[in-house]
């Protein structure tokens, strides 16, 4: 028996919109810890890890660990039928091949049940090691989205370089090149508007902008994005989900041949 009630149902709608273009099918895992997902894109270049902690739900019942194979496009279609203020409850049962999404309006005067078919998905769970990163950049998520969008109109790849001067985003394409530098900026009143750079060592890595632009679909989930870089690891682009958990995108770099 599974029953997860989320007062702020819009969070789940936003999560789906953020990942459905990157990953088409995935297993949602439900345990005492929370509702989570780990999946790679079809080319195995990017990985998304989502965690919505059980404490973040208004009601969380998960009698036994349960893995639900879901086509994310279909789930997104169903969640789009929930109003922006609706409370969403996810209901499931062991041994059934469906999951039910219940939408309640805030005034409780409209209740909708959407039942969705589950599917068998053969997915491998990857072990993500705890790591020390050479540089961690925290910046406004909207600013990062703007940079990725702008650079994406010029080139296909972005070189992200962190030095003590700041973080530099560089691209080159047929029409020319572009270079955007963001300096550390903590002097603002609103901490979410700051750019903070923690650097142990300078680092410079190249990534496909197509994926970066896909990750920025999570911008509505958090005002701040954290970009963790190390020359030995995929970059981590993390959006915290208020009070609940996170959505982390891992992207393997492009390496000089």
């Amino acid at each position: 028996m599974l029953e997860l009630r989320l007062i702020q149902g819009s969070l789940l709608k936003k999560v789906l919109e953020a990942i459905k273009d990157l990953v088409t099918e995935a297993n949602f895992d439900c345990s005492a810890t929370g509702f989570s997902l780990q999946a790679m894109d079809s080319s195995h270049v990017a990985l998304v890890a989502l965690l919505l902690r059980s404490e973040g739900f208004d009601h969380y019942r998960c009698d036994r660990n349960l893995s639900m194979g879901i086509n994310l496009n279909n789930m997104s279609k169903m969640l789009r039928c929930a109003g922006p203020e609706d409370i969403i409850t996810i209901k499931g049962d062991d041994g059934t091949d469906t999951v039910t999404f219940m939408f309640e309006s805030q005034k409780q005067d409209k209740i909708s049940d959407f039942e969705m078919k589950l599917m068998d998905i053969d997915s491998e769970h990857l072990g993500i090691p705890d790591a020390e990163y050479q540089a961690i950049v925290r910046m406004p998520s909207a600013e990062f989205a703007r940079i990725c969008k702008d650079l994406g109109s010029i080139g296909d790849t972005v070189v992200i370089s962190v030095t003590k001067e700041g973080v530099k985003f560089f691209t080159r394409g047929d029409v020319g090149s572009a270079n955007i530098v963001c300096r550390q900026n903590t002097s603002v009143d609103k901490p979410e508007d700051s750019t903070v750079i923690e650097m142990n060592e300078p680092v410079s890595l190249t990534f496909a902008l197509r994926y970066m632009n896909s990750f920025t679909k999570a911008t509505t989930l958090s005002e701040v994005v954290t970009i963790s870089l190390s020359s030995e690891l995929p970059v981590v682009v993390e959006y915290k989900i208020a009070e609940m958990g996170y959505i982390r995108f891992y992207l393997a770099p492009k390496i000089e041949d």
């Binding site: 790679m40 080319s43 990985l47 491998e124 072990g127 690891l233 393997a252 492009k254 390496i255 000089e256």
Partner: peptide, 14 residues
Amino acid sequence: KCMQRQILDYFGRD
């Protein structure tokens, strides 16, 4: 020429 690495080059199967 840049070569795209894959996630599995870094993270092992659990």
